[in-house]
Design a protein around this nucleic acid. Structure first.
Lengths: 195, 195
DNA sequence: GTCTATAGCCCGATAGAC
DNA sequence: GTCTATCGGGCTATAGAC
């Protein structure tokens, strides 16, 4: 595959996408650069010129993915008013990504500290999850969510939603998440709602 | 370290324990046999004689860990009568292991399909988790748990509990899980209880 | 800027002494 | 049964032509 004449940024996007796909399948250390070359059609030299080394490529994959999630989440939050609606928007986004871009969700759930880099924070301290925490904090103030540890509430709500996504991706759930989304979102809300 | 004269079974337990510790830290592919040799004090030759190859060692680590969890869970279930009590026993066991043998819980949460073996099922389809499913099924029949998809209920309850364990292990929760256990268990139950 | 070819390293698995 | 030494293979990263 000859990619000499296409936009360099597009080429690196191909590399990032190919790398993420392979990282999900085999883990960071299970993926060799020559495989990324084959999957992306971009040569070894070009990859090293732009990313420096394998670890920095992995960091870029991580940053880009979380950024993408955060953008999608922000869009959906824009027209939501109640706390319950905002949390529902989070859940629905997670379910949609799981069904429509399973590679992205699987990456977000499975990325772990295989890389000893400070730039690679765990998913739970990413912007998207501190945003969920903020929404819940406001819900407690407004009396929509029962008082107690706000962190516990965030754990409970996201726990229900993310475990559903995880089990779906592992093939344990045969139906699309949309089929049981209402029930899951109700359960997640019941776990934290004020009486 | 010279281990010539100790019980061979004890030696292999040392290997399994060392391997699990290292797998948690660096992932299956990130761990080299010489590292396991150094950590366990057992030689390369002895490891290959007993386990055959690295992949079979990893399978043994996996099987032994799930078996250990299942034994602990069965013990705790013995004297529990109500559905709510049985599920609470599951939650408390998860929290205790997280605090007292974090390596074991981290392994259970992080082990993934890095190894292409059919023997290594995902955690969610292990005996321990089908047991939780059975408990919930009986709770629905008894009217203690709200009707609907029983699988959804199992996802919800275990989701809350396992996410708490996960965030604790990632260092996101500064306090021991026991400090917020009551609240978490109440939230998990609220998500599935009949009204 | 982009490519191919390869240096240098480390790993899994085995051979063979004890 | 257990050890150490080593082989063959595959990896990351770089050198150098275009």
């Amino acid at each position: 595959m000859e990619k000499r004449n296409i936009n360099p940024q597009k080429k690196m996007d191909l590399v990032i996408h190919a790398a993420r796909k392979l990282f999900v399948e085999k883990g960071y250390r299970g993926v060799a650069i020559p495989e990324i070359v084959k999957e992306s059609g971009v040569s070894v030299g070009a990859i090293y010129l732009h990313f420096g080394n394998k670890e920095k490529l992995a960091e870029t994959v991580y940053q880009k993915t979380l950024q993408q999630f955060m953008e999608l989440f922000s869009e959906r939050l824009a027209n939501k008013k109640s706390v319950q609606e905002k949390l529902k928007a989070f859940a629905e986004l997670v379910f949609e990504i799981t069904e429509e871009d399973s590679e992205m969700m699987e990456y977000m759930l499975s990325v772990r500290k295989e890389i000893r880099s400070k730039l690679l924070l765990p998913l739970c301290s990413s912007d998207a999850f501190t945003e969920v925490q903020r929404i819940i904090d406001s819900g407690v103030v407004l009396g929509e969510i029962k008082p107690g540890s706000n962190l516990t509430a965030a754990i409970s709500y996201t726990g229900v939603i993310l475990r559903a996504a995880d089990l779906r991706l592992q093939g344990f759930l045969k139906q699309p998440l949309q089929d049981i989304a209402d029930e899951l979102i109700e359960n997640a809300w019941s776990s934290i709602a004020a009486k």
